[in-house]
């Protein structure tokens, strides 16, 4: 199976370890992982700021890089959702193929690779942060607002990890406040939202906060480090890749 790996810019530059873990994990599960070198961005930062119109060149580039794969996988629910909902191009067939075959990592592991067990081991107390775009957009887990049966792909995967103690905050699916440019244009509320998420995880005495989205984690890490907290952030790919 030929998998095109999409690595959003901030992961490439600031959290390469997440992409490395994703590659190693997928390769261990027998995927042929290719990182198309001319990839840039999914265009979400522009679109969510109201400039979807400026994303043309970016979309074109995305389609050029990712049209020749069985699947496109990314360790970022937020970017995947954006591609799924908004990727368009003159080459509409290719764009459609990508929209239909782009997966966030945990969905890919469970829905496509049908992973049932993992050799992973992570002897730590881990708080789970649910990223909104993965959840309410991609439906990687059920939502507290809806009357429906509960499920969670990230939790299902984490429960395969030996020695991991999973902790959920009481408000288990409240937004962390990152929201892309919201984090700088609405700084006060954004930070307050992040602090409130952290407070709950801290009350649970977790060592790590994990998520399917690095953007949420980058925001939470910024606050944690400013507060000189011991709690660290870790992407779910890193945990699943830990042996």
């Amino acid at each position: 199976m030929k998998v095109g790996l999409f690595v959003p810019c901030y992961i490439d530059q600031f959290y390469p370890r997440v992409a490395v873990a994703t590659v190693e994990l997928l390769e261990r599960l027998n995927c042929e992982v290719i990182f198309p070198l001319n990839q840039t961005c999914c265009g979400q930062p522009m679109a969510n700021s109201g400039f979807a119109g400026l994303a043309k060149g970016c979309n074109k580039n995305f389609v050029e890089n990712f049209s020749n794969f069985d699947y496109v996988v990314s360790p970022s629910g937020s970017c995947v959702l954006h591609i799924k909902e908004h990727l368009t191009d003159e080459n509409e067939d290719a764009a459609l193929h990508i929209r239909r075959h782009v997966f966030e990592l945990t969905e890919f592991l469970l829905d496509v690779l049908k992973v049932e067990k993992l050799p992973s081991n992570f002897p730590h107390k881990v708080g789970v942060h649910v990223g909104c775009h993965g959840q309410r957009g991609l439906h990687v887990c059920s939502m507290s607002e809806l009357v429906a049966s509960p499920f969670s792909k990230p939790e299902k995967l984490l429960s395969m990890v030996k020695n991991l103690q999973m902790m959920l905050p009481e408000r288990w699916d409240e937004c962390c406040g990152f929201g892309g440019t919201f984090s700088v244009f609405e700084e006060a509320v954004s930070v307050k939202m992040g602090k409130d998420r952290i407070r709950e995880h801290k009350e649970n005495q977790v060592e790590y906060i994990t998520s399917t989205d690095v953007s949420c984690l980058m925001h939470l890490e910024g606050i944690l480090r400013r507060k000189k907290s011991d709690i660290r952030v870790i992407h779910i790919a890193e945990i699943l890749n830990a042996i």
């Binding site: 690595v7 901030y10 992961i11 490439d12 530059q13 600031f14 959290y15 390469p16 370890r17 992409a19 490395v20 590659v23 990182f35 070198l37 700084e187 930070v191 992040g194 980058m218 925001h219 890490e221 910024g222 606050i223 480090r225 400013r226």
Partner: peptide, 17 residues
């Protein structure tokens, strides 16, 4: 204002790859 910037690692993913 209330958050640290992410720490840039020595090499990007692209370089690692």
């Amino acid at each position: 204002k209330q958050r640290e910037m992410p720490v840039p690692p020595r090499q990007s993913f692209r370089t690692w790859y």
